[in-house]
């Protein structure tokens, strides 16, 4: 048995969660620092830092929102016995198939304060949902959502139903069976979906551009900034940071999926 595994086994659940969290933070920080050093374009940091932080502000909540909704709908699709499940899954998968510009167009139709639905949502939320970071988060979450939903459904369907039955004979109510048995046993598949969804949220371009615009310091993510600066030297810094962010995020999610909690 490897030393790493020995250490992992000696740690408690909270310590493991803390280790994973620290790894992700350190990974992101190291990526940030490394990119800063390796790029050699320190002078461009002023240009790069804005999109970097906007990307974090968009990708992290988008992944969380898409993850929660994706797992919830994936669970309902895997366990529910209602008509139209496959149609619902197809509808939920539309963002994979439709061009991002089409998604952006429909999101604008739904979220713009000038439309009926958008006006209603704007009044409910208390501020506009387009051409600001909220629009970017919604567009990125929508782009990542189908990957998470499909992966969650498949992983949850793969959990041995006999183990879930055994948990019911222990007196656990269905919601505790879901939280304590089904989801932990499906965590690797769910984490795979989170990984792809997170990558999609990081790289989202078309719908984000249409819903959020390309406002420097406000809605300009790394993906948008790379195109804007494609002929300038700082693009290398941006590309490197985006790659390192993706690697750090993937590594963090991978560690989470392998933790034995």
């Amino acid at each position: 048995m490897s030393r790493g595994r020995d250490i992992a086994q000696s740690l408690g659940t909270r310590e493991k969660a803390a280790t994973v969290a620290v790894t992700v933070v350190v990974g992101l920080g190291a990526g940030y620092g490394l990119a800063h050093l390796l790029s050699g374009y320190i002078a461009y940091w002023g240009v790069v830092s804005g999109p970097f932080f906007v990307t974090l502000r968009v990708a992290i909540p988008a992944t969380v929102i898409a993850g929660i909704l994706g797992v919830a709908l994936g669970y309902a699709l895997a366990k529910g016995r209602f008509p139209g499940r496959d149609v619902l899954e197809s509808l939920g998968s539309l963002p994979i198939i439709l061009p991002p510009t089409v998604i952006g167009f429909y999101l604008l139709e739904v979220l713009s304060p000038g439309t009926q639905v958008g006006g209603f949502l704007t009044r409910v939320v208390g501020h506009e949902l387009v051409y600001n970071v909220y629009g970017c988060i919604i567009a990125s979450a929508l782009a990542g959502f189908p990957f998470m939903m499909r992966a969650a459904r498949s992983a949850i369907e793969g959990v041995d139903p006999l183990v879930e039955q055994a948990a019911r004979t222990m007196g656990l109510p269905n919601w505790r069976v879901a939280l304590l048995v089904t989801l932990p046993l499906a965590r690797r598949g769910i984490a795979a979906g989170l990984t792809i969804g997170c990558a999609r949220a990081l790289g989202e371009y078309g719908a984000t551009l249409m819903v959020g615009g390309d406002i420097n310091g406000k809605t300009r993510t790394m993906s948008l900034a790379i195109l804007d600066s494609f002929t300038t030297p700082e693009r290398n810094t941006m590309l490197l940071i985006l790659i390192l962010m993706a690697v750090a995020a993937m590594t963090g999610v991978g560690l989470l999926s392998r933790s034995r909690t």
Partner: peptide, 16 residues
């Protein structure tokens, strides 16, 4: 099942 106040032992254990 949860409301029946039973305990059950399965052939293969079926531990979590």
């Amino acid at each position: 099942t949860q409301g029946r106040r039973i305990g059950m032992v399965f052939q293969d254990g079926l531990l979590l």
